[in-house]
Amino acid sequence: MKMIRKTLILILFVMISVASMVTGVFAWFIGSPGGFVEPISGDLETDMTIDIQIDQSEIFLGDRVRDLVYITDEDFQTVGFDFYGYGAILAVNLQNSGDQAMNAKLGLYAQSAPDYGIYAGVNSGFKYLVVDSPFSVTPLMWGFQQTSNMFDAMNAHNANGVLVPANSSSTAYIIIWGYYDGLPSGQKDIYHAVVYRMRMTLFG
């Protein structure tokens, strides 16, 4: 009888722990009401540590990216545009505990958020770039602008992943911009209030 009681208490504890994790780890990406007034500092970071030995992981981000700046198609095509200054930066610490170097492939996706109604953000409302250093954003974006479709070039770059040497850790940086032209028509007048419930995926 005591064993059954202990087992029930343990099950209840695990259920409460899981419920706490599910309700406490959403990320909100909140648009800026004055997208072109001031460049944001782009200094958001997280202490997240991920072991990339797993084949795939899905993580609900627990940080907030505030003042996400929305830029347009014209901005993306403008040579010399300050992509670094207008980007929010999410830093992710990647730990490789294996004996071989691996590529960590990170992705960001907007989760369905019907409780936000018309303010629920969608994947087409933002763009992002995964880099091993924030200072490489400017030359990379210039190179993408020279291609026939810079968004395809950005996606191809993200698919390459970030190299993490064996038995060591590396920091990957996800640079995020709001994409005004990708917003649904009903959100273009309220872009500053759009909220994204985000999920990050990792392939090792």
Rank of each mutant, 00 (worst) to 15 (best):
residue 172 A to C: 04
residue 136 S to F: 09
residue 145 Q to H: 04
residue 147 T to W: 06
residue 178 G to T: 13
residue 159 A to Y: 11
residue 184 P to L: 09
residue 174 I to S: 08
residue 149 N to F: 11
residue 155 N to R: 13
residue 139 P to L: 05
residue 174 I to H: 12
residue 147 T to M: 07
residue 193 A to D: 15
residue 124 S to R: 04
residue 181 D to H: 09
residue 140 L to D: 09
residue 141 M to F: 14
residue 175 I to D: 01
residue 169 S to Y: 00
residue 164 V to P: 00
residue 154 M to G: 02
residue 191 Y to H: 09
residue 169 S to A: 02
residue 136 S to L: 11
residue 146 Q to Y: 15
residue 135 F to Q: 01
residue 188 K to N: 01
residue 136 S to C: 03
residue 151 F to P: 13
residue 145 Q to W: 07
residue 140 L to F: 04
residue 165 P to V: 00
residue 192 H to Q: 14
residue 156 A to H: 05
residue 156 A to C: 04
residue 190 I to T: 15
residue 156 A to F: 13
residue 160 N to H: 08
residue 177 W to F: 09
residue 197 R to P: 10
residue 198 M to S: 11
residue 167 N to S: 08
residue 171 T to E: 01
residue 176 I to D: 01
residue 180 Y to G: 04
residue 152 D to L: 13
residue 195 V to H: 14
residue 174 I to F: 10
residue 128 Y to D: 03
residue 179 Y to P: 08
residue 194 V to G: 09
residue 197 R to K: 12
residue 181 D to R: 05
residue 195 V to K: 05
residue 132 D to M: 05
residue 198 M to K: 10
residue 173 Y to L: 00
residue 193 A to E: 11
residue 184 P to A: 06
residue 167 N to T: 02
residue 150 M to A: 02
residue 188 K to D: 01
residue 132 D to L: 11
residue 133 S to Y: 12
residue 139 P to C: 09
residue 147 T to F: 09
residue 125 G to F: 03
residue 135 F to T: 04
residue 165 P to K: 03
residue 142 W to P: 06
residue 175 I to F: 08
residue 188 K to C: 06
residue 143 G to W: 05
residue 139 P to K: 02
residue 168 S to A: 00
residue 156 A to S: 09
residue 133 S to T: 07
residue 169 S to M: 02
residue 177 W to S: 06
residue 127 K to M: 04
residue 172 A to R: 02
residue 191 Y to A: 13
residue 143 G to A: 02
residue 128 Y to S: 04
residue 188 K to G: 11
residue 137 V to T: 12
residue 199 R to Y: 15
residue 124 S to F: 04
residue 150 M to R: 10
residue 175 I to S: 11
residue 195 V to A: 11
residue 130 V to Q: 07
